[in-house]
Design a protein around this nucleic acid. Structure first.
Lengths: 218, 218
DNA sequence: GTCTATAGTTGGATAGAC
DNA sequence: GTCTATCCAACTATAGAC
């Protein structure tokens, strides 16, 4: 009926896959269910994607991009450092809390990727994206507050992601929003305590951090 | 062939399910695969368990018990607090690193539980067990070192579990053992820094040796 | 208690009509 | 490009022989 160019059809199907998987879990995101969600017939999905794995990979890219977009929100430009960190955490936490299904899906995608060779790159791409996003935020904090993280931005970025994962998982399990928020803010205070004054203003290279080493794909 | 009482047969099948699921993922733990792993025929599994979900629930209990057993290891009794924490972390991390499949399975079980109503209790039991175990360890630390955690043992226990989850997930994804170990030890230093002398303490000599740690970048 | 056989369901993938 | 029809594989679960 509704004829569309392949590219648009793919977008529509990825959207549908994301909806089904967020709502009912990654196992429920079958080719059939995605086709039904999008209101197309089974054959259309196989026309747009070579197989189910390609669809899932595309969905994983979409959810990763969505997570990244969430990390680059607006922040008060001239606040003190504690306020800045708190606002960033609140913003992040609100995004997580308001998309429980997507958050859970993210972990399902990670574990699935770690089991199935055909989804091999998905997990590492997810985390490379998260680590890089966290690093960007931390670099912004370093810049605007003229401070440095004693363990280095890269290591701290990974610590941030680990903390978010840990608290998010606990929240998914126990559903306690207030405790999750409290935990993340406690981590924020640790983060602030891990800062030290920058050695020299406007010279970032003087305080070299451990750049350069990239993570090996599994 | 090998006739066994039902109870023993159940143990054997749970063992087999654990082996299959740890090795190949929770999705691979089908009734067929478990039967094959145990060397019995398909019907035997349905004779011992009402259905697949009951088998999975039994397996979840087994892995939870296994995780708990891992947390109650031997520790040097008369060491200072920093050494005690480091030894505990090393012990914990070694256990995780040496059972990658089981660790990954643990997260698969959690996400599966959160999606499927028939596995509803699994995730919360996992985490209640982990939180309680962490709390016991922290209470032991409080007692032996005569200190208190400023945020309270319960909250700190949950923070410990969150940190372990976060670092473990990252390790599962990137495979970097050294970084995982480093991250957990960095958290250990944070944990020590979150202690304060117990009120009305007779001696706090252990606490006085805990400062002065340097945080090394990677 | 254990086995084979089979029912019944779901899902991936393709062929061919339109 | 889209649909229907169909094939094939894998799975849960049960029935009934031994």
């Amino acid at each position: 009926m509704n004829r569309l160019p392949v590219a648009e059809r793919r977008e529509q199907l990825i959207e549908a896959a994301l909806a089904v998987a967020s709502r009912d879990g990654i196992e429920a995101a079958t080719v059939r269910a995605v086709a039904a969600e999008a209101g197309v017939s089974l054959g259309v999905v196989h026309y747009c994607f070579q197989d189910k794995d390609e669809l899932l990979r595309a969905m994983a890219h979409a959810i990763t991009a969505q997570n990244l977009a969430r990390s680059t929100g607006e922040l008060p430009p001239d606040a003190d450092i504690a306020t800045l960190v708190e606002a960033t955490i609140d913003q992040l936490w609100d995004g997580i809390r308001d998309s429980r299904g997507a958050q859970l899906l993210s972990y399902e995608l990670t574990t699935s990727s770690l089991r199935h060779p055909e989804l091999n790159q998905v997990a590492i791409e997810q985390y490379r994206g998260s680590w890089a996003a966290a690093e960007q935020v931390l670099l912004g904090v370093q810049e605007s507050a003229n401070v440095r993280f004693s363990m280095g931005v890269e290591q701290m970025a990974r610590t941030v992601v680990a903390a978010i994962d840990g608290y998010s998982l606990a929240w998914l399990v126990d559903g306690d929003e207030e405790r999750a928020r409290m935990g993340m803010h406690a981590f924020g205070r640790y983060l602030i305590a891990s800062m030290e004054p920058a050695p020299r203003a406007a010279s970032d290279e003087a305080f070299s951090t451990t750049d350069g080493d990239e993570v090996q794909p599994a």
